[in-house]
Amino acid sequence: MQAGILLAFASYFAFACGDAALKGVGDRLPIFEIGFYVSLFALLPALFTKRPEDNWRNVFVPNRPGLLAIRMASGTLGGILGVVAFTTLPLAEAYALIFLLPVFVTVFSWLVLKERIGWRRWLAVLGGLVGVLLVVRPGFREVLPGHFAALGVAICGAVTVIVLRVLGPSERRITLIGAVLVAAILVNGVLMIPDYETPHHGLWPILILGGVCAGMGHLLIVFATRLAPAARVAPTQYSQIVWATIIGASFFGEYPDALSLAGMTLVAVSGLFTFVREKEVGDWPDRVPLIRNR
């Protein structure tokens, strides 16, 4: 149990480093080109998530192809929007918006799955929205395209969660992870062609770092959920806000003010409360393969 939770913390640290690498590339390459190379290099560590009983053909042999196509679309679009968010916003601010994901999951569960949502979970939704207002402060600060991109990441992640709740018991893990990485490589690869720029030699280490960190994050989270229940592992994802604050201050000179810190804390608490309440009212989190939704 303890080893699984420690691996989960290491996984989300790897993800935060990968996102910081995206910010390090910044606007020096087109968005789709960044997405292509990061997805390509992320595929290498993710290959080790394959179980002995699986084979590579399983990636392309889904049991429910329609839902898997939605998973691939939401994962790929979320990845592209993530590049936009992390290259244009402070790291911690981007995470604060992306961690509205549980709020959207609650709303989609009510709208799509017709789940009964109690007043406590609706209160958590309101708390998350207030937290985001404290971070963004529309009308007092400039609202950038990256803010909308980060919200888009949260929505795409919520769609992925809803789909995984249906797909989880029937699909192989290698299919759920491999298919979206392959889709991201193909889509970004095609879209980057018109504006392709050969990366400067100084950018290659950053692109490789970003991809390898993302792939290592997937690998570590798979190992973590083999050692500890997903319900114990999932809350560790909020450590990314802490890592983002530390990395942003150390490498990019980003220092959130008191209101932003309060807003990020409120978003994290609301998300954690939402997860705990969903765990209490149903056992679905244990049936969902825990992978990084964006």
Rank of each mutant, 00 (worst) to 15 (best):
L126S: 12
G82T: 02
R64S: 14
V84D: 07
W122Q: 07
E93A: 06
L151F: 14
L68Y: 03
T87Q: 10
V143D: 03
F99E: 10
L126M: 11
N55G: 15
L111K: 09
R116N: 08
D54T: 06
E53V: 10
L47C: 12
T76E: 10
D54I: 04
G118D: 13
K50D: 01
I70P: 00
T106P: 09
L113M: 12
F140N: 13
L44N: 03
F104G: 06
V107C: 04
L133H: 02
H147A: 08
V130Y: 04
R121P: 04
L126V: 13
G78M: 04
P45Q: 11
T76R: 12
T160N: 15
I117R: 11
L100I: 00
L47D: 04
N58C: 08
P52Q: 09
V135G: 13
R71P: 10
V136C: 08
A42R: 09
R137K: 13
N58Q: 13
G78Y: 02
F108G: 03
A150F: 01
R137A: 05
A85W: 06
A149F: 12
L111G: 03
S74P: 08
M72G: 06
V159D: 12
G127W: 05
L113P: 01
R51T: 12
G127M: 15
A73E: 05
F60R: 13
P145W: 12
I155C: 09
L133D: 03
R71F: 01
V159S: 09
L100Y: 04
G78T: 06
G82P: 02
T49W: 01
A154I: 00
R116F: 07
I117M: 11
A92S: 12
G146P: 11
V103A: 12
P62N: 08
A96Q: 07
A73R: 11
L101V: 03
S74I: 09
P62L: 04
H147Q: 05
R121I: 06
V136L: 10
F60D: 06
V61F: 09
R120I: 14
G79Y: 02
L123E: 07
A158Y: 05
F140I: 00
R116W: 07
E93T: 13
P102E: 04
A96T: 08
G66I: 03
F60V: 15
P45C: 10
E53D: 15
G131N: 11
L47I: 15
N63W: 01
V132Q: 01
V136M: 09
T160V: 12
T49A: 12
G82E: 00
T76C: 14
W110E: 02
L81Y: 09
L91D: 07
G118P: 12
R120F: 11
G131Q: 10
V84L: 10
F104A: 10
L91V: 01
F86H: 06
A46H: 07
V132S: 08
G82R: 02
A94W: 00
V161Y: 10
F104K: 07
P65M: 02
V125Y: 05
V83K: 09
G157S: 12
L151C: 06
L89A: 02
